[in-house]
Design a protein around this nucleic acid. Structure first.
Length: 561
RNA sequence: UGCGGUGUCGCCAAGUGGUAAGGCAGCGGGCUUUGAACCCGCCAUUCCUAGGUUCGAAUCCUAGCACCGCAGCCA
């Protein structure tokens, strides 16, 4: 009798809650989420997690997810960011039910504020920002009531209306919720609901002189949209009691808020302020620099949407702050690229190899499998071979240890897809540097196999010198040299941890013809080297490729390289 | 000295009283016309600490310890 084994993946704690609600009918079977970014910067790897959680959970349970821009602060927000975010989310492969803005709800929010004033639950405060801070108390001491806290409803109504009409300067007054200045939860000490801002809004112009605070806008926005799961990061745990209070006073739909930990990665920074400094101070070449953890940067680097989404699955969702090893990102990227990426040959640092017994004017075009990793896909491409070819400098050692399976004097290796060659000598310049390798080839090994059945341990890649195409290769490494970029000595900042070798330009690389012709954005594996992505900086004369991620390199580890 | 949250393998992370899943990394081996990929094996007698309850505890109780968040008219 065979046991039925139901090996189900364990659910994360959010999905488990959703399933329980579905079972009990808590929200009548509705699963509605939203991704609520503030349009004040570019989306980065941290947002990828939020996006995958918000959209992913809706997707998993037949629900829907809105994209809502939380645009409550006109001094920081711009349309440019709205557009880039839309593009980035689409690139990740998600589609929203509705595209909305918190500013869509400003009228409703205003009405609700008036309602709270009428009920004696909100008041206009004339205290200055400094005074408000003083009156708020500290983490261990209670705050005290503002002298304006007990104004009459009529006076509050009048003042609030005049705030809206622009009669007062910024910072002269705010509207506050009347809750409890002695609450141990600081968010409940009469939080500000509206402030005066004479700044036009990027979408709705100068219609408003007062703008709702995030805390006043967010929960109600979710409520209006019928959101059932308000998924957010851990720091909002402290705000939940306030959102609950607002929703309860108003008596409107109450989403279930569930907080989860943000994604942090070693060697990576996700603070908007920090990323902005990297760009503005020229440490990187813009927001889409392939070293940036922005979605645009990663995309240009050659990371795929599938890899990013899988990374989130791999890291999981929990309520414990954690920092994921960057190696997991590389794993996710390699795993996705390995399956589908065409293979080509590129010599990063060329060394001339001359086959002395190969006819001077002979030329052969070898059929090289383009997808050797996929036995189902027999596609090949042609690689030109002649007397002179280029090999990788690393693939030759004059005084090689026995474990070195590549070319060395007297040793035989396979030129991938072509012939077996044996090194017979080297040519050196005046400085004693090896500038050329001399080899003989065995004509009976065409395609790379010896008729006599002898084996060679090493196979190296090559590019024909006659038809190889010069290319620029940009080798990227992690942007920071410390796991925690913020870990610096007294008096220094994170820029002290910038990795000086995060970009290495290889201007003399050679690629085989078929990769040179690819479209920008095409992915390749340059065999034995890594995954590369053709950059938009390519010109017809010279293609440019970005290193997405290198291949694992056991030899480098063994040899101490 | 307030409130809230979190502590399970180097990094993530399951586990919800019945005797520590999985992934990454690492290590060993196989295979290999990519020293890649792939395949096989190894990798927590122990769950922050100390007591207690129980036949039985990572899970329950008590007391500690450590780390994170909160004092914007930012989000």
């Amino acid at each position: 009798m065979v046991e039925e084994t139901t090996a189900t993946e364990p659910l994360d704690f959010i999905r488990r809650q959703v399933e329980e609600d579905l079972r009990t009918g808590y929200f009548d079977g509705v699963v509605m989420t939203r991704f609520p970014p503030e349009p004040n910067g570019y989306l980065h790897i941290g947002h990828v997690k939020a996006i995958c959680v918000d959209f992913g959970i809706a997707e998993d349970y037949g629900g829907a997810c809105n994209l809502r821009f939380d645009d409550t602060n006109p001094v920081k927000e711009e349309t440019e960011y709205v557009e880039s975010m839309i593009e980035d989310i689409h690139w990740l492969g998600f589609e929203w039910k509705e595209l909305l803005y918190a500013s869509d709800y400003f009228d409703q929010l205003y009405e609700w504020a008036v309602q709270l004033i009428k009920e004696g639950k909100a008041y206009v405060d004339d205290l200055s920002p400094d005074e408000i801070r003083e009156y708020r108390g500290t983490l261990t001491e209670p705050g005290k009531n503002s002298p304006y806290r007990d104004r009459t409803v009529a006076e509050n109504l009048d003042l609030f209306e005049r705030m809206k009409n622009g009669e007062f300067p910024e910072e002269s007054r705010v509207l506050r919720a009347k809750i409890d200045m002695a609450s141990p939860i600081i968010n409940l000490r009469d939080p500000v609901m509206y402030r005066i801002l004479h700044t036009p809004h990027h979408r709705i112009g100068d219609k408003w002189c007062i703008y709702p605070m995030y805390d006043w806008a967010h929960g109600q926005s979710d409520s209006i949209e019928g959101i059932t799961y308000s998924l957010c990061s851990l720091e909002y745990v402290n705000h939940r009691p306030l959102y609950d209070w607002f929703l309860d006073q108003l008596g409107i739909h109450h989403p279930r808020q569930i907080e989860f930990a943000r994604l942090e990665l070693t060697y990576t920074l996700t603070s908007k302020r920090r990323l902005r400094r990297l760009v503005e101070e020229g440490y990187v070449n813009g927001w889409d620099d392939p070293r940036m953890p922005t979605i645009r940067g990663m995309r240009r680097r050659g990371y795929t949407a599938a890899a990013m989404r899988n990374l989130i699955t791999l890291t999981g969702i929990s309520t414990a702050n954690s920092t994921v090893d960057f190696g997991l990102v590389e794993y996710a990227v390699r795993e996705d690229l390995n399956r589908v990426t065409p293979r080509g040959m590129a010599v990063l640092r060329p060394l001339r190899l001359t086959i002395t017994n190969y006819p001077d004017d002979q030329e052969e075009w070898f059929d090289i499998p383009t997808y050797p990793q996929d036995k189902e896909n027999p596609a090949t491409h042609q690689a030109p071979f002649s007397k002179e070819i280029a090999i990788e400098q690393e693939d030759f050692m004059e005084d090689a240890p026995s474990k070195f399976f590549r070319l060395a004097p007297g040793r035989e290796v396979r030129l991938l897809g072509a012939y077996l060659v044996t090194c017979t000598g080297v040519v050196k310049d005046e400085a004693g540097q090896v500038v050329e390798i001399l080899c003989t080839y065995d004509p009976a090994t065409r395609g790379g196999n010896a008729v006599d059945g002898r084996k060679v341990k090493g196979t190296i890649h090559w590019v024909g010198a006659r038809h190889g195409v010069p290319a620029e290769l940009r080798l990227y490494d992690r942007l920071f040299s410390q796991e925690d970029p913020e870990a610096v000595e007294e008096g220094q900042d994170f820029t002290a941890n910038l990795n000086p070798h995060s970009l290495e330009l290889l201007d003399n690389a050679l690629v085989e013809p078929f990769v040179a012709d690819a479209a920008n954005g095409s992915h390749f594996q340059f065999m034995r080297q890594g995954y590369f992505c053709r950059d938009a900086d390519s010109t017809p004369a010279k293609p440019v490729f970005n290193l997405t991620v290198n291949l694992k390199d056991t030899w480098a580890k063994v040899s101490g390289g």
